[in-house]
Write a protein that binds this DNA or RNA. Structure first.
Length: 921
RNA sequence: GCUCGAAUGGUGGAAUGGUAGACACGAGGGACUUAAAAUCCCUUGACCAUUGCGGUCGUGCGGGUUCGAGUCCCGCUUCGAGCACCA
């Protein structure tokens, strides 16, 4: 009988589904293992062959762990809220829910064909009210919490209000936006509205005036990770800065913990590094500079280079800094206003593109606290308002940006490090000996930079000029979106004060609206909803939550997906804990993976879950790129020339649909039928074939290089697809999809089939076959642990070839082989398990074979013998021989004589199982 | 600019400091077949010798450590990724 995937695969998929083979429940008698994929956004284009790469990898691991006796949680769901469905709704008027439901159905059918072992009974969708109830709940909990910097965790806001009522801000330890100072009496005297506004300074979910990335084209704000190089990640539309009153999450309060938490995670170094960059911790000092002639005004600045204070020759303020109006003198007023105006009209993008040095003098001078010297205060947009204090001390000799500014405006440059040549550029390195750094109270001359920084910090703290300060680049997350297709905020407004809906009114359902556009008044789309108010008549919040809201805690929901009382029950959470293995793309490094860790830590602080990190081990699968094919049309003709001959003509390369090309050979008939303009195309062939050129590009419709997994499954089967995707190369590496090699994997499955088709009997296995099998067990087990799936596939190929050559029919060999293969190619394994091996139960319940090292022990060993590292000959000796005997035999062996001739042996090196090396002189 | 990776045949890629190129594709040759498909066998890093043995060079470049380096160390080159007027 021939191997027929078309018959086998649907049959077993149905079997698994009917018997709920992959359904799991907590089982205290077995250890748990949680394998999770980053759930997909179901786009209209469906899955291409790149998407399942990570899913296949996690599926193999999940199946492997199950065979090892673990109770494996391996769920799947959909990140269903998002911009594309809404954009589509705006264009067509179709409800995003309809589009989303259709897309999910398509994804599901595509996923089902690949044979994953998901427990579909645990499926979640972020747009499902049963799911987003808990997104809304978490938001409310954040509103009712603040971050206590003394206990170093989120605490109920009631603890904070109690403190304010008793002591005012005196002795308050809370992460906040501004340093506020008031007494208990002042707090008590505030109106409810004032109290509400003040509390926003500390709430973890708060309303705040912030500079946001506003995308006019999309009509919404975007988070920092949704913007790249000044344009929106989705759509590529320009983004500008705008001050808006928005819901925000105080992610910044968790910056240090997010950084520290990385230490104990089993993530790749590069991913941790990316997160460290994003969090951007920098340790420095905050220092106050007096303004000459204004006794009541200090400029507060942040610097990491306190040591360079003797080289400060001017100060710079960000244009948005509150200091600007205070230091601008009447004479300079006009010039400053003109400059501010100019800066305001530049978008973020424009600022980034033209890096022209611009600025204006404020008219005032600051006083260097160490030298007493007066230095001018400038205003320039190279200083960012949002980082540090929005003001800097400029040290042109040792900072390239200050240097450029000093050169442009002809300001003095004082070198502070011995041997630093600052005539052409600044010396930014933090090394060398200090010079020119002595004042009446502090002398840094001769110190190393590192020591000078420490010494200066000490000094300024003693003198009360400043203090040591840690700054983070990580900003609070802006949590409002002016969109329709997202979670509604469970918030209403009464007398201008935001209130949370009571718990029994959750979930607050997303209302129906007539058009998915902002209202005439410029309100978000929810402004169109009828009766969008509480039963008492209070207006509800019109913004919706961003995409990351629903994806931040979904992993918890899978543990207990139908619970209507809690996000996850304590019992389910105690059993499943957190994700043991998370697989997904690296594009989520600074978005989802930061928010999710934040969200998780918050829920942990408030006692709702048991783990303070969500994802123990994380693997980033590489991207599968497209491999485009080209045909070469001779200019101004309809004649196409094969790739090998194209240089003889003047040609235009044209993208050809890769689905009508096989092994770079174009199917010319299909090509003619592909598009009307190629109907009467002529071809200049080589060796009777039309060979296409190729290039690696992004997989996209416009390049005609999208390969649908359905087509591969149809032609070769899911098992071939699974094996081939793993065989393509290391999991974590990006690589182009190239169908050229798929036949090799398919051939392997046919050989495997043939091996079992030859019959299975109970004969005793040969020593040779045992060796083949146990070599495979050892290799595959260690490869799976290291996610080195490509080499395991190679090991299977070798094994099957050897067993075929050995004419092995022994059940003792062929049965374990099927189990080893089951994670990789579950359909054929299941089929062989039943038909060839005669089992009634599913192969999923088998036990992973144990490795027996004794099978591999040889009675003879072949040693490569080398002299001075040069490989000379092989020597086969009994395994029982000891080191001394082996070396003696090597020196006495034929061929050794010319190396030993008249030379003395310096030393001998014996590496068991590897090599015998004899060093002679 | 800073940080982190990577570089191996025609191609994708293997190699705990120990015979570089596993495995696969592609290519070439052969068997079976009227023929094709399918299947099987041989060759396939380069160069020299191929009348046999074989020999020389080879993991981006230049040094170093070591009996021995694709692998470790130092210095470059190129490519990729992340961050980027973050003081």
């Amino acid at each position: 009988m021939e191997y027929n995937h078309k018959e086998i695969e649907p049959r077993w998929q149905q079997y698994w589904q009917e018997r709920e083979v992959y359904k799991v429940n907590p089982d205290p008698t077995r250890p748990k293992f949680y394998v999770l994929d980053m759930f997909p956004y179901p786009s209209g284009a469906g899955l291409h062959v790149g998407h399942p790469l990570g899913y296949i990898a996690s599926d193999i691991y999940a199946r492997y762990k199950r065979l090892q006796g673990f109770n494996v949680l391996h769920p799947m769901g959909y990140d269903a809220y998002g911009l594309p469905a809404e954009q589509y709704a705006i264009q067509t008027g179709q409800h995003p829910e309809k589009t989303t439901t259709e897309n999910i159905a398509r994804y599901r059918s595509q996923l089902d064909k690949i044979g994953f072992c998901y427990d579909w009974s645990r499926e979640v969708k972020t747009c499902d009210p049963e799911f987003y109830k808990w997104t809304q709940w978490a938001f409310q909990l954040m509103f009712e919490s603040y971050y206590d910097t003394a206990t170093n965790r989120a605490e109920p806001i009631s603890k904070l209000t109690a403190h304010l009522a008793a002591h005012g801000t005196e002795g308050l330890h809370a992460a906040g936006g501004k340093e506020l100072s008031f007494t208990a009496e002042e707090w008590a005297a505030m109106t409810p509205k004032e109290q509400s506004d003040v509390l926003m300074n500390w709430r973890i979910a708060y309303l705040g005036h912030t500079m946001v990335n506003w995308c006019p084209k999309l009509g919404t704000v975007l988070a920092n990770d949704e913007v790249c190089e000044g344009v929106s990640l989705r759509g590529g539309y320009p983004v500008e800065q705008r001050l808006m009153y928005q819901w925000c999450l105080r992610v910044s309060a968790y910056a240090q913990r997010l950084l520290d938490g990385l230490e104990k995670l089993d993530w790749t170094d590069s991913l941790k590094e990316t997160q460290r960059n994003w969090i951007g911790r920098s340790e420095g000092a905050e220092m106050r500079f007096k303004v000459a002639g204004k006794d009541d005004l200090d400029l507060e600045i942040f610097t990491t280079r306190a040591d360079t204070i003797f080289g400060v020759t001017f100060m710079v303020l960000a244009p948005e800094s509150a200091y600007v109006s205070q230091v601008t003198t009447p004479e300079q007023k006009e010039a400053v206003e003109a400059y501010l105006n100019e800066v305001k009209h530049k978008t973020e993008r424009e600022r980034m593109i033209d890096k022209k040095v611009t600025g204006v003098f404020s008219g005032s001078y600051a006083v260097n606290p160490l030298t007493g010297r007066e230095i001018p205060i400038w205003i320039s947009d190279y200083v960012l308002a949002g980082y540090g204090t929005g003001a800097i001390m400029a040290v042109p000799a040792h900072d390239s940006r200050d240097y450029a500014f000093a050169r442009k405006f002809d300001l003095p440059i004082i070198p502070l490090i011995e041997g630093a040549d600052v005539s052409e550029q600044s010396f930014d390195a933090k090394s060398g000996k200090m010079i020119n750094s002595a004042g009446p109270e502090l002398n840094l001359n001769g110190l190393e930079v590192k020591d000078a920084i420490a010494r200066t910090k000490e000094f300024i703290a003693e003198k009360g000029i400043g203090k040591v300060k840690v700054n983070f680049r990580l900003r609070d997350a802006i949590f409002s979106r002016q969109r329709y297709w997202g979670e509604p905020f469970p918030v209403y407004y009464k007398d201008g004060i935001p209130h949370m809906l009571p718990a029994d009114r959750l979930p607050l359902l997303l209302p129906e609206i007539d058009q998915y556009l902002p209202t005439e008044k410029g309100e978000p789309p929810l402004g169109r909803a009828k009766n969008w108010q509480t039963p008492e008549g209070y207006p509800l919040e019109l913004n919706t939550m961003p995409g990351f809201a629903g994806s931040s805690a979904y992993y918890l929901r899978y543990m207990d997906p139908r619970n209507s009382e809690a996000l996850v029950s304590p019992e389910a959470n105690a059993y499943w804990q957190n994700v043991d293995l998370y697989i997904g793309g690296t594009e989520h490094a600074t978005g989802h993976l930061i928010y999710s860790r934040f969200w998780n830590k918050f829920l942990y602080d408030r006692g709702h879950i048991v783990c303070d990190e969500p994802f123990k081990k994380l693997i980033n699968q590489g991207m599968i790129q497209g491999r485009s094919n080209f045909a070469y049309r001779i200019k101004d003709t309809n004649t196409f020339v094969s790739a090998g001959l194209k240089d003889q003509y003047d040609v235009t390369p044209i993208h050809v649909d890769v689905n009508i090309v096989s092994n770079d050979i174009l199917d010319t008939e299909k090509f003619r039928a592909w598009r009307p303009e190629f109907n009467n195309a002529e071809f200049i062939l080589e060796d009777g074939k039309y060979v296409c050129g190729w290039a690696v590009e992004k997989m996209s419709k416009s390049m005609f290089n999208v390969v649908n997994p359905d087509d591969i499954v149809e032609r070769y089967g899911a098992d071939t697809l699974r094996l081939y995707e793993m065989f393509l190369g290391p999991l974590e590496q990006s690589k182009p999809w190239d169908t050229n090699g798929i036949d090799g994997v398919n051939r392997f499955l046919k050989k495997l089939w043939k091996l079992y088709d030859g019959g299975v009997d109970d004969s005793a296995p040969s020593a040779e076959s045992l060796k083949t099998l146990h070599t495979l067990i050892k290799k595959v087990t260690s490869d799976i642990e290291q996610f080195s799936y490509n080499t395991s596939v190679a090991a299977f190929m070798i094994c099957v070839n050897e067993l075929t050559a050995q004419k092995c029919h022994s059940r003792a060999i062929l049965e374990p082989l099927v189990i080893l293969l089951a994670p990789f190619a579950p359909h054929i394994a299941e089929e062989l398990w039943h038909s060839a091996l005669g089992h009634q139960s599913t192969v999923c319940d088998a036990h992973w074979p144990a490795f027996d090292p004794s099978v591999l022990v040889e009675n003879e060993v072949t040693y490569p013998v080398s002299f001075n590292g040069k490989m000379r000959f092989n020597l086969t000796l009994p395994a029982s021989m000891g080191q001394e005997e082996v070396i003696a035999a090597a020196m006495g062996a034929e061929g050794a004589a010319k190396w030993l001739d008249g030379k003395t042996v310096v030393k001998t090196i014996f590496v068991p199982g590897k090599i015998v090396n004899i060093v002679v002189k």
